[in-house]
Design a protein around this nucleic acid. Sequence first.
DNA 1: CACACTATCTTGAACAATTCAAGAAACGGA
DNA 2: TCCGTTTCTTGAATTGTTCAAGATAGTGTG
Lengths: 141, 141
Amino acid sequence: MESQHAIRQAGLRVTRQRVAVLEAVALRPHASPAAVLADVMTVLPEVSHQAVYDCLAHMADAGLLRRFVIDGGPMLYETQTHDNHHHFVCRACNLVVDIDCAIGAAPCLDAPGTEGFVIDEAEVTYRGYCPACAPKSFIPA
Amino acid sequence: MESQHAIRQAGLRVTRQRVAVLEAVALRPHASPAAVLADVMTVLPEVSHQAVYDCLAHMADAGLLRRFVIDGGPMLYETQTHDNHHHFVCRACNLVVDIDCAIGAAPCLDAPGTEGFVIDEAEVTYRGYCPACAPKSFIPA
DNA sequence: CACACTATCTTGAACAATTCAAGAAACGGA
DNA sequence: TCCGTTTCTTGAATTGTTCAAGATAGTGTG
């Protein structure tokens, strides 16, 4: 119900596939197309992977979803396009965690030597070790 | 000559392929495996793409190269692992430009709500419009 | 300088993620 | 309800990367 309004307000047609995709993304912290496809198939067994790719791409372009990539991995999508948060990736277990932005709504947008550039977004990826992996990393083998 | 020492000091065997790959990366601001392969083939016509992938991966692991990805694109490599700079990507022409770090050697490493996390790197990707594309973006069609 | 040991390279296939293309289905306004 | 356009299905194609097996070539040692 909620999803339908959001999709319509974004100027997109409301289809069962889009509603299901949007709700699937909303339920996962960081959803890959494959994961979304699996989730959506439990509701709409006949969805094609292509529909999932299209829905994700259109909704990302429309601002309903945020899209990012970790290393060479698959695309990841998340809702919450409004708040400006970043991502932490554990070097050991590849866990991805949201990190709130420390420096206000638009962090680090003032970069030196950028005369003539129009910078509207700064995406930050932190790397290191999560609490579960950090202890081990100090006691090598 | 220079490259060979660097490779040896990193604890890697010095091969013609590695020297050529390292020098190819050094000549380009941001080199994809395909571009490196093309460059290396002008010197060593028989190189395999696999050798290029191996060299890049080993040298990146050894700290000789830095590796990053823009969106879902191919892996990009660059030398200059020492200085902590970031990348700007133009939304219109996909130009990638280096941006020096504004906030010291390790920017933004203090993030809130990260108790228990060990963060050792922050990679920033700025997005917007480069000087060539910025004017056009304000005069839509 | 030759030898052996191992790392690296070549060749060729396999894989994962994504995109392209053509026709069928279905949303939304009249 | 009907039409026009968008979106979805189906299935193939592409891109970028990785896997595997055997040949080749560094590097330390005698």
